[in-house]
Design a protein around this nucleic acid. Structure first.
Length: 423
RNA sequence: GGAGAGAUGACCGAGUGGCCGAAGGUGCAUGACUGGAAAUCAUGUGUACGGGCAACCGUACCGAGGGUUCGAAUCCCUCUCUCUCCGCCA
């Protein structure tokens, strides 16, 4: 969320951001609602002031004056009661619009509409040249019995799967490698709630715009989160953080649930796009300072890269263009891992700075050095997301004989196995 | 799931219809005293929104929302959260 005063004074910049981010919000309607809201608020507050005056006068008034004042008080009350619902209606319209206004992209973010406009900033390793016909992850995993497909798709629905045996062991291994890497680098591991109230999703910017993407537990008014970013940021909702303790850096481990609304029929083969996965996510709260946020951003990116390097997976990093970054994000890097089966770099990580967008919505503040209250900046980045990362891992490390050589760093997490050989 | 108790400012805690944005204490800040400190004394010390160049003014907020009343921290209803007991359970 942006500050309404900022929107009023920087209308052109906000309009530009709406256009470039392809956001769906009527800025003129918002400005009109704001004007209406303030005018009505002034009128209402004037009437309330009068009401308070009368109420204070009554106990001091003489017996004779009292009935008249009480009548006046009743009239004031009626006038207020007429205005209140009108204001409530305008405020609710105003707030709904406010929640749809995007944050402003940082100046370095390229203007563009789609993936093709992202700017590659780095490439590490290079796609492996196979001297045999490489298998895709589905064939590889089937050869090892790593996944159960048919049963889950019958009893749990489309895009369901179960990791089995070596598949499940591999998932555990990459998660643990990621966790250890982050803990070594000073992040605090958190296993948060994954069923949350609507406010957590509004607070982190996923609602109202992305509501169709979340699973709802209607009986209890809860939603399943699509990332632990939601509970980790919400951890500090309604509180004031201590500037001296920032930055706060968390590593969240959780299952993630996504309806993939609007992706029907897309990436249906294998484990690339599934409704439920497990992710280690990094979340940072830092001082509201662009320089500090930038440092933290690249630190998060570096952590993800370190994990990919341990897994010996070739990858590239791209700076996402305005059309590809989310409502609240001011800067986003995508890390794409090489997947031979798709013959493409595919997104496995996403590193974002959100400025004070989430902090405002979640009512998280920080006492600044000058004693005033501000909003901390938040950032997040994937550390590892499984099973998607298993695609890159298996496909890149396969051998002509169908075996898979495990990267050295993963061996201790795989009970000492250096190589997987199909039975 | 059943029964009960509670939620007041940074913290503790008073307050059962108007004099309460809220006593008192602690903490914190500034000043006095001191060689310096402690102690002591004095003053100050919430947030949001709106108006104003500003000083400042207005409104709202005593867990949240609604109601009664001329007037609600205080009375009524609903919800949330915390605690205790019973049941169930990994």
């Amino acid at each position: 969320m942006l500050d309404i005063a900022f929107i009023r004074h920087n209308t052109d910049a906000v309009r530009e951001a709406i256009k470039n981010k392809r956001a769906d919000v009527d800025l003129d309607a918002l400005l009109a609602a704001d004007k209406e809201r303030r005018e009505l608020l002034q009128e209402l507050e004037g009437k309330r002031a009068r009401k308070n005056e009368i109420a204070q006068a009554i106990p001091k008034a003489t017996k004779e004056d009292r009935p008249g004042l009480i009548e006046e008080g009743k009239a004031a009350k009626t006038a207020i009661e007429e205005l209140e619902p009108k204001l409530a209606e305008i405020v609710s319209r105003f707030e709904d619009l406010m929640l749809r206004v995007p944050s402003l992209p940082r100046p370095e973010v390229p203007v563009g509409v789609g993936e093709d406009d992202n700017v590659e900033v780095k490439k590490v390793g290079s796609p492996r040249a196979f001297d045999f016909e490489p298998k895709d992850h589905v064939a590889l995993m089937d050869a090892f019995g790593m996944v159960a497909w048919d049963g889950p798709r019958k009893f749990a629905g489309e895009r369901s799967y179960a990791l089995v045996g070596l598949g499940a062991l591999l998932e555990r291994a990459v998660l643990n490698l990621a966790i250890d890497t982050l803990v070594d680098r000073g992040l605090t591991l958190v296993t948060p709630p994954v069923m949350v109230r609507e406010r957590a999703l509004v607070g982190t910017g996923f609602f109202p715009v992305g509501k169709a993407e979340a699973y709802a537990i209607t009986a209890d008014d809860l939603f399943l989160v699509g990332t632990s970013e939601v509970p980790l940021v919400s951890l500090h909702c309604d509180t004031t953080l201590d500037l001296a303790k920032l930055p706060v850096r968390y590593a969240g481990l959780s299952p993630c649930f996504r309806r993939e609304a609007g992706a029907h029929g897309k990436d249906t083969r294998g484990l690339y796009r599934v409704h439920q996965f497990t992710k280690v996510e990094q979340v940072v709260f830092c001082a509201p300072d662009e320089k500090v946020a930038e440092e933290e951003h690249y630190k998060l990116l570096g952590n993800a890269e370190a994990i990919l390097e341990k897994l010996e997976i070739p990858y590239r990093v791209a700076l996402a263009c305005t059309g590809e970054i989310g409502l609240g994000q001011t800067r986003k890097h995508e890390v794409e891992s090489w997947m031979p089966g798709r013959n493409a770099y595919s997104e496995t990580h996403s590193c974002s700075t959100l400025g004070d967008f989430q902090a405002r919505r979640s009512n998280i503040r920080v006492r600044l050095a000058d004693g005033t209250l501000g909003y901390p900046y938040t950032l997040n980045n994937t550390a590892i997301a499984s099973p998607r990362i298993l695609i890159a891992l298996l496909e890149n490390h396969q051998n002509a004989d169908g075996s898979i050589t495990l990267p050295k760093a993963l061996v201790p997490y795989m009970r000492g196995m250096e190589k997987l050989t199909p039975a």
